[in-house]
Structure formats: structure tokens, C-alpha cells
Amino acid sequence: MPESGPLPTLSGSPGPTDAVLLRQVLERRPEALSELYDRHAPTLLALCRRILAGAADAEEVLQEVFLHVWNNAGRYDAARSSVSTWLVLIARSRAIDRLRSRKVVERVHEAAHLESPGEHASPEGVESVFHRERRQRVKAELDRLPPEQKQVLEMAFYEGLSQSEIAGRANLPLGTVKTRTLLAMKKLRSALRSDIRELL
């Protein structure tokens, strides 16, 4: 993502790019962290909740993610990923670590039943037009995948399972799991190329 010029942000208004904000975070400017948080926290919280199966401690993971960003902004490498993807990968990794280390699956399922949907703001309140359109595209492309391909991809991404673990859990040959995963990723890469181009 280029660092100059106004670009769509979560709020839908022009503003500094994520990369610029991250550089300001590196300069220890809390207002930049605040802006970055406003843009990405809703998506990252949804990701953490998805991984932790609606876990109550998703917000703690979210806070860890942004504290990590605050303390390690210098580790971001623009050549490897966009800021958005960097944040997603950190959040995913932290949430999966939490899932594994605390074995919260059964516990949080119970909590999820108790959780009221009204605790968090509605999507309309936190999502920009830009992100809503992106979400619709990503969701449509994922729905377009054959269910068996989508299943292995979700197991790999949201549950952090290796290909062998997926094969064991789904009772499928390892080669089949790999083929489905690779097909799904290649289709998404092709279908989402306009979004990817915006991130590069």
C-alpha cells in the first residue's frame, strides 16, 4: 500500500495509511496506535472470537495484539505483507496459541451460549463502506468454494491445524487434504486479486 495520498480507511474517510500510522507508532505516538486500533480492531476481534469459538478472552488477545504492535512496530516488514495482514497473522497466532495452551474449547462453548449478542456494536456501527464491500467479496468467494475445500481451509486457518492433523481429524488421505487446500488457496488468490493488489 503506498504511503502517500489519501486511501480508504476503516472509517471511510481519507487519512494516513496504515504504514504511516505504524511508523508513528514506532515513534511512540499513542494517537497513531489509537487510529490503527479503530481501523482494525473490529475485524481482529471477529477473528479472535472465531478462533476461540466465541471465547470471552478474545478481547484480551486483541489487547495483546495491539500491545505487541506498540512494542514491536519495528519488526514489521513491508516487503512481506501489508500492515493489515501483519495484524491478522499476529492475532491469529495469538488466538491459536491461547486455544492450544489453555484448552479452552469446551469452556468457551459454554460461555458462548451465555453471551448476549447485544454486547458489541453492530457491524453497521464499526464497518466502513470500503471494508463492507471487501467483506462481501471475500465472503462470496469463500462461499463459492466447494464445501470440502472450504472446510480444510478453515481448519487450517482458524484452528491452526497442520495438513496431517486435518487428515486425521477429517479421516481423509493426506494427499486429498493438501489438494483441497491448495485448490482453495489458488482459487482465492485468483478471485481476490483486486483486493490483494490494493494490499501490495
Binding site: A41, S84, T85, V138, L142, I196
Partner: peptide
């Protein structure tokens, strides 16, 4: 890597 970064956009965003 960017494909992976896009996957969570399928989810309904939630305001902390």
C-alpha cells in the same frame, strides 16, 4: 500471505 490476511474479512466485524 495476503490471501490469508483477507480471510477474516468474511467475518462480521465486532467492536470491542
Amino acid at each position: 500471505t495476503e490471501v490469508l490476511g483477507l480471510l477474516p474479512f468474511e467475518l462480521e466485524p465486532e467492536a470491542p
